[in-house]
Simulated assay, not measured.
Amino acid sequence: MAVRLFFLLVGLLVGYGVGRLLTLLGLGDGVSATANTAYLMLAGLLLSFLLGPRLERWLTQSFESFVRWFSKLDPRRVTAATVGLVVALLLSVLLSSVLATVPFYTWYLNILVTAILAWFFVYFALQNASSFSGLGWSTAGTTRKRANVKVLDTNVIIDGRVTELAKAGFVEGEIVVPSFVLRELQLLADHGDPQRRARGKRGLIVLEELRGAVPVRVQEWDAPDVAAVDDKLVRFTREIGGKLVTNDANLSKVATLYGLKVLSIHEAATALRPKLQAGELLDVTVTKAGQQAGQGVAYLDDGTMIVVEDGMKYKGKTVRVTVLSAVQTNLGRMVFAKTVGD
């Protein structure tokens, strides 16, 4: 609302300014000049009223794009570019002082030299941005916190089940792979041991499949003072305020002690495992016939269908059955059983 009022005010001022300009140019005087100014102010007001919503949307989108771009900036690269620009400006000032007495050194030549120096030093600083971590800025601690971020460890990538979970929509939000995890996969893929080499190659393949299914971002981050990859994972996840996705039980316990939210693939698989296992005994009431001849159908309290072999003869009765197998279908969980003694 404030933006639209601002546009209306600008329209009035522009109309007033144009009217006064026409008066100064002699295009009207007295009552006609006042009428022209009023008409132009009204025209500016109407034009601002018509174009205001579009300008407001454009400004809002531009501001949101700038915020998204700014939030993704690497603090080290910003620092490097700033230092490079400052060095270029200092050298330009020194050259201007030294060459001020030279006849051919004009102001436009000074601007050209300054632009060349700025391009060179900023480009050089950006190419060596990682070196600025030794000037007091640590690569750890410069990562911005973001909402709903999932951090993948090496084992969960090699496991591969996270890809299916992501395709099914159970792993939502931004998925981040730290650069040191990617380097560990590369080292495994180049290892002399065939088993480790196969694990590393599988991890890289799974990561490519995951990137094809959902957006995955590799975050350049490292902590030179920390040797263990698991310790780096815990520190990185804490700094960005994310959730750690893993299937390593020990890492899961350590991360939980540090107050991190952990998404364990193993725990998810255990939770999705059928509750009824082969050999368990159940007391069920056969309610109707099954699809095959002689089959009876019963239901548990949670709606699970129990298909009882030769159970139709017990229709309307409660019988004890033994679970033979349990399967998961699109319609829900289905259990096959037979009566005890058959």
Rank of each mutant, 00 (worst) to 15 (best):
L135K: 04
L135W: 15
W137Y: 14
W137N: 07
S138C: 10
T139R: 11
T139A: 09
T142A: 06
T142P: 01
T143Q: 10
T143R: 03
R144W: 10
K145D: 10
K145M: 13
N148K: 07
V149N: 02
V149A: 05
V149D: 02
K150Q: 05
K150S: 01
V151Y: 01
L152D: 01
D153A: 08
N155S: 13
N155T: 14
V156C: 09
G160T: 12
V162L: 04
V162H: 03
T163S: 08
T163G: 12
A166Q: 01
A166K: 02
A166W: 02
A166M: 03
K167L: 03
K167I: 04
A168K: 13
G169L: 09
F170E: 05
V171N: 00
E172R: 04
G173K: 02
G173E: 02
G173L: 04
I175F: 06
V176R: 01
V177C: 03
S179E: 04
F180P: 02
L182Q: 01
R183V: 15
R183F: 12
R183C: 07
L185C: 03
Q186T: 13
Q186N: 11
L187V: 12
L188T: 02
L188I: 07
A189R: 07
A189L: 08
D190M: 11
H191Y: 13
H191E: 11
D193T: 12
D193L: 13
P194H: 12
P194W: 14
P194F: 14
R196M: 14
R199Y: 08
K201E: 11
L204F: 08
I205K: 11
L207N: 05
L207M: 08
E208W: 08
R211G: 07
A213S: 07
V214F: 00
P215T: 01
V216F: 06
V216M: 04
W221M: 07
D222L: 12
A223N: 13
P224E: 06
A227V: 13
A228T: 14
V229D: 10
